[in-house]
């Protein structure tokens, strides 16, 4: 089982709650995925408190752990204040830290990310940083107090899947004891299975499920893929080879000529 900040999580899939066709489909997708953690955000309340309260009632009924994010923050100050506001609303120290550096690519501002991670870690937060696959940035985040890393595998919402597998493999090899969660860029269950086969501890995704033709079916499919990939990693896969090798024994083969 996956353990993060002293909490044991049965599922290795973390699921976002945005962009579903309806609240009911969101709830069904969360259940079908088997996820133990859902991500949420804080946004301007425009209905006197009722919009947030309604959404919160839906989420809390799901019984999963909550991971608030700082999505859309472009500066250290914005991200830190949003994290503190999330802590007040949700009463917990977990924060998915996003400091966005570019409007178009939604690439993290890794310099601001490290700075914000340090401020929040020192303030008692359990920081889940949305980062790149850069090893030096990863080291700086760990020095800043992070205990888990969440590299992208492709830009947010792109559905490209792992575009740089050697970089992900290298990250896994460099940080064998740090929980690594692929966050962003997954498009289909085979992508999730691929990164789990590389030994990643979990995946976090949203758009690939929420925007599927059948989000509930896709949530279930991702749940299975994550489990399959993880079990395959633990079971020791064959290395590919370029020559054929018979699987049926050649010994005892009949000779008819």
């Amino acid at each position: 089982m996956l353990e993060l900040f002293g909490t044991t999580l049965p599922s290795r899939l973390l699921l976002g709650t945005a962009q579903y066709p309806s609240p009911a489909i969101l709830a069904d997708a969360v259940k079908a995925s088997g996820t133990s953690v859902v991500t949420v955000s804080l946004r301007r309340e425009m209905a006197g408190g009722k919009a947030g309260e309604k959404f919160w009632a839906l989420i809390s009924a799901l019984g999963t752990k909550i991971l608030p994010n700082t999505a859309g923050c472009h500066s250290v100050k914005e991200a830190v204040t949003t994290a503190k506001m999330a802590r007040e609303v949700f009463g917990m120290n977990w924060i998915k830290l996003e400091v966005i550096g570019n409007h178009d690519t939604l690439q993290p501002d890794v310099f601001g990310l490290v700075e914000a991670a340090r401020i929040l870690s020192e303030d008692g937060f359990s920081v889940f940083p949305y980062t790149t696959d850069d090893l030096v940035v990863a080291e700086r985040l760990l020095e800043a107090g992070c205990k888990v890393l969440m590299p992208w595998c492709a830009p947010i919402g792109s559905a490209l899947g792992p575009v740089n597998i050697p970089a992900l493999r290298s990250m896994r090899a460099h940080f064998p004891d740090v929980p690594l969660i692929v966050d962003a860029g997954l498009g289909r269950p085979s992508h999730a299975a691929t990164v789990m086969e590389l030994g990643f501890d979990a995946v976090l995704l949203n758009t690939a499920v929420a925007k599927a033709a059948d989000p509930v079916g896709m949530a279930r499919a991702f749940g299975k893929a994550v489990e399959a990939g993880h079990e395959a990693f633990r079971s020791g896969m064959l290395e590919p080879r370029e020559v054929a090798m018979p699987s049926t024994p050649t010994f005892g083969r009949a000779v008819f000529a």
Binding site: G16, T17, A18, Q19, Y20, L26, T39, V40, S41, L42, R43, R44, E45, G49, A51, G52, E53, F55, W56, I59, P68, N69, A71, T82, M85, V89, F90, I156, N206, T207
Partner: peptide, 10 residues
């Protein structure tokens, strides 16, 4: 002044 509440997020 910013007044925020829980919303959908990824």
């Amino acid at each position: 002044i910013e007044i925020l509440s829980p919303m959908q997020g990824g």
